[in-house]
Simulated assay, not measured.
Amino acid sequence: MTYETLQQDMQLMVEEWMTSDYLRDGELFVIGCSTSEVAGQAIGTSGSEQIAEVIFKQLNILKEKSGIQLVFQCCEHLNRALVMEREIAARYLLDEVSVIPVPTAGGSMASYAYKQMTDPVVVESIKGSAHAGMDIGETMIGMHMKHVAVPLRFKQRQIGNARLAVARTRPKLIGGSRANYEDTRLNNKCN
């Protein structure tokens, strides 16, 4: 994997999200990322803030184009806490915890993101509030997603050497067969 290939992978992923029409202004978008897996190594063995930088820059483009709010999952050493801007934590009434992620405890992606944000905080949980997200390297972001998470089948299935899984959420279906869902956000895209 080269940095040029990584950037191309991320650009393709950004394009797919932008054409998907699943992202809404202000919604939480959670990212779990193993930079070790992106580099072709076992998760947690060779993190890289250089890889994180390439990924972060492309995610920032996605944020600028779509209006989403980026939330970065830390690794299990920080119990999968999340890095975000203080303003977003306040908007969602989330409690800050006292920790700063570093590559060896939090992961290179969360550590890099923390350093790039204007006023970063770490929160213990987003209480299943993410509207969409992506998991680079099987880092298990599902606990942060709203119900009901719907996996998406993008053409872009890898970032570097890491497997990529992406998902969006939809409101729960209630009311059974007599209910009408035509004018909802589902737009006949139920899975």
Rank of each mutant, 00 (worst) to 15 (best):
S36M: 09
E96T: 13
Q50N: 13
I88E: 01
E96V: 11
G67V: 03
I31R: 00
S108P: 11
I88P: 04
E85D: 14
A90D: 14
R80M: 06
C75R: 10
E37V: 09
C74E: 13
E76D: 13
I61V: 09
T35M: 01
A39K: 15
Q50F: 08
G107A: 11
I68N: 12
E76H: 12
I43D: 09
V99L: 01
E96Y: 07
V83A: 10
L82H: 14
R86F: 06
E96H: 06
G106R: 13
L94I: 14
E64W: 09
Q73D: 03
V83E: 07
L59I: 03
E37D: 11
V71G: 03
V102Y: 03
P101E: 05
E85G: 14
V99M: 00
A52I: 10
S108A: 15
L70I: 07
I51L: 05
G47L: 00
E85W: 06
H77D: 04
S48Q: 11
R86N: 13
D95S: 04
I51S: 08
K65I: 01
L70H: 05
S36V: 12
V71P: 04
I68L: 15
G44D: 03
L93V: 07
S108T: 14
C74F: 12
I61E: 11
Q73C: 03
C74Y: 14
Q58K: 07
G107V: 10
G32K: 03
I68W: 14
A89S: 15
G106Q: 13
A42K: 04
I88Q: 02
Q50E: 15
S46F: 15
Q69W: 04
C33H: 05
E96I: 09
R91N: 03
G107L: 06
V54C: 01
F56C: 08
V99G: 00
F56Y: 12
I31E: 00
G67P: 02
A42N: 04
E76N: 13
S34A: 11
V99D: 00
N60L: 11
L82G: 08
G32W: 01
I100M: 08
L93F: 13
I43C: 09
V83L: 09
A39N: 15
R91P: 01
E76V: 13
S48M: 11
S48E: 11
Q41A: 15
K63S: 10
V83I: 09
S66L: 13
C33Q: 05
G67E: 01
S66W: 14
T45C: 04
V30Y: 01
P103Q: 05
Y92K: 12
E49T: 15
R80S: 12
G40H: 12
E53D: 15
G47C: 04
I100H: 06
K57G: 02
E49I: 11
S108I: 07
R80D: 08
Q50L: 08
A89T: 15
I55Q: 02
S46M: 15
A81W: 10
I55P: 01
G47I: 05
A81M: 09
C74I: 15
E49D: 12
V99N: 00
P103F: 01
T104M: 07
F56H: 09
T104E: 05
N60Q: 10
I68K: 13
R80W: 04
Q69E: 10
V30F: 01
E76Y: 07
E96F: 04
S48H: 11
A52M: 10
N60R: 13
